[in-house]
Every structure is written in structure tokens, then in C-alpha cells.
Design a protein around this nucleic acid. Structure first.
Lengths: 211, 211
DNA sequence: CGGCGCCTCAGGGTTTCCCTGAGACTAGAT
DNA sequence: ATCTAGTCTCAGGGAAACCCTGAGGCGCCG
């Protein structure tokens, strides 16, 4: 039996996950937790093989729990289970040794696959995560930098998020419009943005501008 | 049998809700939807008595769906099902005639109670909501809908804020790209937006999407 | 019935996007 | 001292998006 711990603050979601997992034999949900601290204690008591951690939990977020679990003698595999396709969270998670990353929107289809992969101690990353980011995250050892943008790129991103076009930005920075466009494009590549709207949401999430 | 429609973009959560509801006899989940537009179509086809709407759905948020359902001949009771205790959302919901408001953290304990209350056509509001707002909201005053956009414009704005271009939006709404561009332009004029970024910030401020 | 608002779409000029490539400058490593 | 890596700067150019104007159809309401 593969022993699983589920940590999520929403009862209904835990119920759904448990139901999904227990459709297969060989899998057993041995404990549940509704916040980060509970998850740590439950992991201590139940010694699960795999821990499914919601990212946005009260008290302690999923990645923080993962960080603490890392130090334990019998370290379980960890699946971070999150609402948003957020590169910063994925980055952070990979940095603390998490091998599983699943979007909630992807759960029904791929949870069992993810768990099976983790049971073999292989990495599972949700398919909907932007490919460029994944490459950037899985390949280079340059992960310490949680903010992937250069200073200039950050400035441009912020100006874009404030509602300015490249043509309006270039006189502010006293550079050519092509320069602004390059910074914009490379920033988009790094943060996995495919549109101006993605840039704006990124900037708001990172408190570079207010909504 | 009381017929229920569940709309939420997370499969696992729908599974959990369905499992919870079907523990009781007399309740039947007749349809599911994973975004706002699907919810509208499913409501048309399945004619449910109660519609459970996640607030933060793609394409069209829960309150927006409620607004459109209001105009239907056989209008179902609506339960808005949301993550956050947000006065603005509740206010908006009540304004469009929603009588049920349940926090996700409260679901396991009170979902059935909420559904039963709605089945009697009475209002159910989750416990943690501030009383003053409730009062202000439950007695019909001059709480006006301050949102100047038409339903179609709101949908387009949300889709834009989710990162989609006009070309990607038009097949979703099954209209020509010129139509989408017109809605986009008139929405921008109404809300005073001069760029895509302004649209996105507007959408986030009005909780049409999350950052 | 006659407006009025909403949804739908076309034409078309302008702008922006976004990819590729490339030179210069700095800093750190070999 | 040379090399490497990263950043900032900019150009060209095709594709796409933007945004304005105009306009027909539909439902609703006075």
C-alpha cells in the first residue's frame, strides 16, 4: 500500500481527493490535515509515502511545509497542489526538493498519474505549466534567483502594468522603442507570459503595481 | 427530487460537492460545468432548481452567471460558492438577486443546510459575513449597480483579463473577431481604459478575475 | 409605433507585438 | 590579460492587434 497524506483547508476538496484516490486499490489515504502545521504533525504520526500539499493553506503554506519535511529522516515525496500557474511558487517548490506539482484544474485527470509517478520517485509537473518556464526551472542550476527579471526588465514590466505602451515608455527611459520591446519580450519569455494581461497580473501578484 | 447544477472549474471540488450532496436522498446533481459559459448552457439544458456557482470561474464569474440567469423564465435559486469573505462580491451577488452565499471553508458543515434553505426559497448567508452589510444588503435600498458595462462587455473584459486576445476570444463566444473588438473598444471607452493593462486592472479591482 | 440599447459585423489605417540578430559595455572567472 | 556571461542597447520586418466609423437587426418599453 502506498500511504498518502492530504493537506488542504477545504473539506470538500479533501473529500474529493480521497474519493478519487480510493477508486484505485493499492492507495490509502492515511491522514488529512487542514493547515500547514497540522500537516507536519500528521506526517510525523502517519509516516506517509506521499504528501499532497495545497499551496494556499492557513498557518503555513505548502512550500514551507515541504521545506520542513525535507529535514525529516524518512522524507516523503511531495506533491504541491495549487490553484494558480505561478512560476514563483513552482520555482520555490523545486528549490526545496519538491518533485510533484499539480494544478487544481488538472487534478481529476492527472492526480493518479502524478501520484504513481511520485511513487516511483520521479518528477511530475502539471502539463499546463508553461513550457519555457519548466525548461528554465528543470535545467539550469541557476534557480536561487527567485526573481528572474533584470532590473531593466522589471522597470519595463511595471510601466507596462501601469498602462503604458512601448511608445510611451521609451521617452521615459530615454531609450529607443526597440529597446523597450526587447525588454518586454524577454521579460515575457522569462515569466511565461503570452499577453499583456499576463504581464499585468504578474506585476500585481509581485506587488510591482496595485490593481 | 431537488435538481442541482454544480459549476466550478476544479474537477476535484465538483467531485467532493457531488459526493456530499448525494449522501442525502431527495437531492440530485443533474449537471456540472467548469466555467461560466458552460454553466449557462447547462442550466438551460438541465433546468436545475438550484445552481451552485463558484465565484472565481474562467470565462464568466459566478455573479455574472447569476446576472444572466436572472433573466431566464424559470429562474433557479443560486448559491454563490466562494473562497474569500469579500464584501464587494457579496454585495454584487445580492444585487443581482442571489440568495445563497457560502464560503468554501464552510462547505462541509453547511452546504446541505444552505441547499435546504434555498430549496425553501429563503436566504442563506455564510456565518462569517459582517452583519451590517447584510442589513444594508437585504433591505432593498438604493444599492445601485455601479457597473456600467453590458453583460457581453463584461464577459469580454474578463476574457481579456485572463490573458486572451480577441482572436482567441471570438471562437469561445462564437462571434466574429470584429464583434469582440467592438465590445472591447466600447468597454474601454466606458471604463476609461487606454490600454490592455488598464482593462486588466479594472477587472481585478472589480473581482472579475484574480491577479 | 418609434425610439433606444444591445449585439453583431465590415472596412481600413495605425500601432503594437514579437522574433531574430547583433554590437557595446561591465564584471567576474580562468 | 583574456575569456565568458549577462545586460543594455537597437534594427528589420511580418504578423497581429488595436481602434475608429458606420450600420443592420433584434428586443424592449413608453
Amino acid at each position: 500500500m502506498t500511504r498518502i497524506l492530504i493537506a488542504d483547508d477545504h473539506d470538500v476538496l479533501r473529500t474529493g481527493l480521497r474519493a478519487l484516490i480510493e477508486t484505485r486499490s493499492g492507495w490509502e489515504v492515511v491522514a488529512e490535515a487542514r493547515d500547514g502545521l497540522e500537516a507536519l504533525r500528521a506526517a510525523e504520526a502517519a509516516q506517509p509515502d506521499i504528501v499532497v500539499l495545497d499551496y494556499a493553506m492557513p498557518v503555513m503554506n505548502g512550500v514551507e511545509v515541504a521545506r520542513q519535511l525535507r529535514a525529516r529522516p524518512r522524507r516523503p515525496e511531495i506533491l504541491i497542489f495549487t490553484m494558480h500557474d505561478d512560476d514563483a511558487v513552482l520555482r520555490e517548490a523545486v528549490l526545496v526538493g519538491v518533485r510533484g506539482y499539480l494544478l487544481k484544474s488538472d487534478a481529476q485527470g492527472h492526480l493518479l498519474e502524478a501520484l504513481a509517478t511520485l511513487a516511483r520517485h520521479e518528477a511530475y509537473i502539471s502539463g499546463q505549466v508553461s513550457g519555457t518556464l519548466l525548461e528554465a526551472v528543470l535545467k539550469p542550476g541557476k534557480l536561487e534567483d527567485s526573481n528572474p527579471l533584470t532590473p531593466r526588465e522589471r522597470t519595463v514590466v511595471q510601466l507596462i502594468a501601469e498602462g503604458r505602451t512601448s511608445r510611451q515608455i521609451c521617452p521615459i527611459l530615454k531609450v529607443g522603442i526597440k529597446t523597450v520591446e526587447t525588454h518586454r519580450a524577454s521579460a515575457m519569455r522569462k515569466i511565461g507570459a503570452a499577453s499583456t494581461a499576463d504581464i499585468v497580473r504578474y506585476a500585481i501578484r509581485h506587488r510591482m503595481v496595485e490593481a
